[in-house]
């Protein structure tokens, strides 16, 4: 049986780690695949005495979506898991793989192009087709971050546990998006073991929505997650995070602050537009962003059923 330290060593030698393999197997290999299957450190969902939950990196998306206790405590995460990709992808893809997958930029994935992500020195997408490009300009690369779980986990204030380091906030996996060469900041050989979600807020209500052209099975143009606690018609706790619009998943504290200040949902959602700097064909993403944020705020405010 391969061990965690074997894997770290192998990855330092230039391979790519494979969890579910749904991303890795669908693009040209950048080296040998190093299989993580069966590593005990990365498996299992564990509820801790303080009410937090540790989710092993190899937990599949389907298991996450089907876990009733997670759905009850962290509906935002369960909803994001249930809505992504397709049933078969969900049954194989993992939490760790979803967080650390490569982006979907058509330029990055096409061998005809060289870009920051593939070892080159430029971003052909900026001068090219920009319909899906990031509308929050945080660095030279304009590929939106692809992870739906990252959006939810950011809103859940989860921490990431990497072999050999102290747990740190999930957002630090990605930084500010200014490094155009990669989709996460973990060094080669580092293995993401688990994410841990702190206990939910009392009475919290949550929503997640992905906006896309087709009904199902499509990468979102924009997605958003919201967690609200509403007491006597006022928002007393708010977490709002979004994806599809920036190089990294974003938490929108300006929207949260507006909600806490008692602004109406529409007004708060409009604030999501303040960071946007559209260019080329992606101006519509500003409206989709505010629309999608409003969508999750309304649903979290008054959950269906």
């Amino acid at each position: 049986m391969i061990t965690l330290s074997d894997i770290g060593a192998a990855a330092l030698g230039g391979g790519e780690l494979r969890a579910g393999g749904t991303d890795l197997m669908s693009r040209p290999a950048a080296g040998p695949h190093i299989d993580l299957r069966g590593l005990p450190e990365l498996s299992g969902v564990t509820w801790l005495p303080d009410g937090s939950v540790r989710i092993g990196a190899l937990t599949t998306i389907a298991a996450l979506a089907a876990d009733e206790r997670i759905a009850a405590a962290h509906p935002c995460l369960a909803l994001a898991a249930a809505a992504l990709a397709t049933p078969q992808i969900r049954s194989v893809a993992t939490v760790g793989g979803n967080l650390l997958q490569r982006n979907r930029c058509a330029y990055f994935r096409n061998p005809a192009f060289s870009c920051f992500q593939s070892g080159g020195n430029g971003c052909p997408a900026r001068a090219g087709h920009t319909l899906r490009a990031a509308v929050v300009d945080s660095g030279p690369c304009v590929a939106p971050h692809p992870s739906s779980l990252a959006v939810a986990l950011l809103g859940c204030e989860a921490t990431a546990e990497v072999d050999g380091t102290a747990p740190f906030p999930v957002g630090e996996l990605y930084g500010d998006g200014s490094d155009p060469t990669r989709d996460h900041l973990l060094p080669p050989g580092a293995v993401l073991l688990a994410v841990t979600l702190p206990p939910p807020q009392e009475g919290e209500r949550a929503a997640h929505h992905r906006t896309a052209g087709r009904a199902l099975a499509e990468w979102p143009l924009v997605e958003a997650a919201a967690r609200l606690v509403v007491a006597d018609g006022r928002v007393t706790f708010a977490r709002v995070s979004v994806g599809g619009v920036a190089r990294v998943p974003l938490r929108l504290t300006e929207v949260e602050d507006a909600l806490l200040a008692g602004e109406p949902l529409e007004r708060a959602a409009e604030l999501a537009a303040t960071r946007c700097a559209p260019s080329g064909q992606n101006a519509y993403k500003v409206a989709l962003l505010t629309g999608t944020v409003l969508e999750v705020l309304e649903r979290a405010w008054a959950p269906a059923g």
Binding site: A112, H129, R214, L216
Partner: peptide, 28 residues
């Protein structure tokens, strides 16, 4: 509603070269 081939305006390379990016209707 969905189908559209995209070509990179600089190089002429077709960008919609897979079934994620070239979008045909699904059952839903």
């Amino acid at each position: 509603l969905y189908e559209e081939r995209h070509v990179d305006p600089v190089t002429g390379v077709v960008l919609t070269a897979n079934l994620d990016d070239y979008q045909i209707p699904g059952i839903a």
